[in-house]
Design a protein around this nucleic acid. Sequence first.
DNA 1: CGCCTTATGTTAACATGTTAATTTAAGGAC
DNA 2: GTCCTTAAATTAACATGTTAACATAAGGCG
Lengths: 159, 159
Amino acid sequence: MTDPRYTLTQDDFPKDGLQFSETRRSLPMALLMAREAVMERFRPMLHALELTEQQWRVLRVLQESPGSDATLLARKACILAPSLTRMLKALEARTLITIARDPSDARRMILSLSEEGHALLKGAAQDSARLYGEIETAIGRERLHHLLDEIEALLDRLE
Amino acid sequence: MTDPRYTLTQDDFPKDGLQFSETRRSLPMALLMAREAVMERFRPMLHALELTEQQWRVLRVLQESPGSDATLLARKACILAPSLTRMLKALEARTLITIARDPSDARRMILSLSEEGHALLKGAAQDSARLYGEIETAIGRERLHHLLDEIEALLDRLE
DNA sequence: CGCCTTATGTTAACATGTTAATTTAAGGAC
DNA sequence: GTCCTTAAATTAACATGTTAACATAAGGCG
């Protein structure tokens, strides 16, 4: 039923003092595990759409910010430029996006969703909202927003 | 000074209502950005050691749980089995770990740090602690622990 | 023992992460 | 205009993420 890959039993982390707090309660690991737990819920939907997590993020950003160039898109979707270069080729080959060039700057790309891209996101909107709603319900709306605030504060403090 | 890859300026996210909250305040993106912000601080140290993030995690887990098999190690380090298979070969080739077989179960591996592996972690312990201390200072000790508690609660609620 | 099921790793194939080097286009100084 | 610097993307090379299929070893059951 649930993906057992990251499901640790009690035996996996004997609470014998320092060892427990040392690894599992480290911030990088906690963030990694939390992200995995959240994305696990979205994977079935993405698999059905034959999209990777990252491709989903790229399409979502283009939906909100059509006409972005590659640099801005990479920043908003948290994807590095070399990865994005490869992804854009694949997404264009699937006719989910359109790639144009800025006439005033031949280096810069002008990226947007295609009709198919719009249609794909529109068709997935219900499922996506439902899944996010389930997560919100599981942890509590207010608690979730508080968590997001704290993460945002962390980002501020770390520059 | 700071890595500008994920540094978004105000212009990147016009606060015109829904668009801002839609992507940036989504839990998966927030967790991803937070993790990136944290790991950014550890990258210089890891680069100096010629270790990747994941290799670092594997070595740390072996330090705390010597003799683990591959399955347990994968779970504790949040690394998938196929990745771990490749990594163990590389780490053994660098003589940072030792790989033995369980005499009572020929399938199971018995993984531990080598002398070099122990020495490497010992040499990096100071830097690692200092970097984590800086993060703790930046956000505040109590606030960091609260954040970890909230993330742990999220993990519980999502199973 | 022979058969079936499960557990543990491995391999394959492709996508992405990551760093460094490279290409091409803009922009500025002279 | 020429030279220099920067900006935007790309390429290369390797490591890891991800899924599916596979090989081998244990264990249970008849």
